[in-house]
């Protein structure tokens, strides 16, 4: 259902961020996670960071995403 994708914050200005997951970069916001800092690993869902996540957990999820579907398709599947 609501799979959130771990990604690293590689740019941050106010609550506007650019995040990177396995080399895929996209825009996201940190409005819902005000404590997020540049370089943090966060879970992203529907364009928003929802929580901090550690490196080991992020790797597990990346692996799962890569297994479940082509990674490029995944950000399209926000809610189902």
């Amino acid at each position: 259902m609501c799979l959130a994708i771990p990604a690293r914050i590689v740019e941050l200005e106010g609550d506007r961020a650019v995040v990177d997951a396995m080399g895929n970069c996209w825009k996201a916001k940190t409005t819902l996670l005000p404590e997020a800092k540049l370089g943090d690993l966060v879970l992203i869902h529907a364009g928003f960071a929802l929580s901090l996540v550690d490196e080991e957990e992020a790797k597990k999820t990346w692996q799962l995403i890569a297994e479940i579907s082509e990674f490029d398709d995944t950000p399209n599947k926000v809610s189902g």
């Binding site: 609501c2 959130a4 819902l32 869902h45 529907a46 364009g47 928003f48 809610s79």
Partner: peptide, 8 residues
């Protein structure tokens, strides 16, 4: 979407 999506 469920509670995960509503905040966005």
């Amino acid at each position: 979407g469920f509670e995960t999506t509503a905040p966005a």
